[in-house]
Simulated scan of single mutants.
Amino acid sequence: MAEPTILRAKRVIHSLTEESAWRVARFLYRDRHDATAVIPAASEAPVPGNYREDVARIGTADPDSFPPLIYQTWKSRSVIPANYRHWRQTFVDLNPDCQVLLWDDADNRAFIADRFAWALPVYDSYQREIFRADAVRFFFLFEFGGLYADMDTECLRPIHPSATAGAVVLCRMGGNPDFAHALPNAVMASRPFQIFWLFAIKRMLDAAASPAAATSGPEALTGPVLLKQAHDAFVRLDEAAVMAELAPVLALLNERQQASLRYAQPTLLPGPVWYPLDWTNLIHKRLRDRLRKDQRILPASVGRTLFPHAAVVTYWSHSW
């Protein structure tokens, strides 16, 4: 009696279109599921490059255009889970016009020390590396622009045009815009020197100095909860009010950064474009857990069939 089970599954899915909901439900409940998920080949080959070499290749950022950059970060350049290596390669294969950078913890700290030394005391004060891995992506998008993607994110289609849909591009997950995690920081895109990122950085620095910081997790101090709060505050203010709030941070920028500043409202993509898998949905969570348990992956053809409107899909491994 498969049909009643599928119909019940469809009723609890709220974040996808009816077309995609039907596809996901059928995939979950068909007998052939385990045969379609495979474990990728392991490798210990280090990803070449480092912060200094990558910055030299990036060159001078143009504040008025989207750069061909995809930025990711992981604890190491060589000790990388096999599924993460596979998903990273999908960005390389489907975006041949882009540099796909991978920075480790040392690269990230070198970048902050080099370009944002005034933020280094707070950056170093975080109690765990996940806070720094969250924080650095705001600084990277401000300084260089491009697309940031978590390592548990697969590219299903080229990142253009979704990543260039606005000067700052975020994506809403799920059907509840008031949910504290509704704007994940797993995938974000931007032109360089966007004031929005400075606004998020200012809110992040303020959160680190708050009495609640000692007992707060990364979601609230550096991650999606903070990002949503920064976004919601930013869009309520006019440009003059934003600049007034940012005055202490603006004074810390170097002359090049100050001269390149640009102001734009963020663009929000519909959830199925970047977050077709909604971790708050029980059916989606079941798919995520099946894949995560054995570090399995879906063949590209299956991913594109399940998520026909998606440029990327994040599998929410919560590896930290």
Rank of each mutant, 00 (worst) to 15 (best):
E3G: 09
P4K: 09
V12Q: 14
I13V: 14
S15M: 01
L16D: 02
E18V: 06
E19F: 10
E19T: 11
S20Y: 11
A21I: 01
W22R: 08
Y29L: 14
R30W: 14
R32I: 05
A35C: 08
T36P: 00
I39H: 15
G49S: 08
G49M: 03
E53T: 09
E53N: 07
E53F: 03
A56H: 13
R57V: 10
A61I: 02
P68E: 05
P68M: 02
I70A: 03
K75E: 12
R77D: 02
A82E: 14
H86Y: 15
R88M: 07
V92N: 03
L94Y: 13
D97I: 00
C98W: 04
Q99V: 02
W103C: 00
W103A: 00
W103V: 00
A106S: 08
V122K: 04
Y123R: 03
D124H: 12
S125A: 15
Q127S: 15
A133R: 11
R137L: 01
E143H: 15
F144V: 01
H160F: 10
C171R: 03
C171H: 05
G174M: 02
A186Y: 03
V187A: 10
A189S: 14
S190E: 05
I195K: 05
F196S: 01
L198C: 06
L198D: 03
A200N: 04
I201W: 10
M204G: 04
M204E: 06
A207M: 09
A207W: 05
S210M: 05
P211C: 04
A213W: 05
G217C: 09
A220E: 11
L221H: 09
G223P: 07
V235F: 10
L237V: 08
E245C: 08
E245N: 10
L246Y: 14
P248D: 06
V249K: 04
V249T: 07
Q258F: 12
L261V: 08
P266N: 06
P266R: 07
P270F: 05
V273F: 04
D278E: 07
L282Q: 11
D294K: 15
R296G: 05
I297L: 10
T305L: 13
A311D: 07
W316N: 02
S317Q: 08
W320P: 12
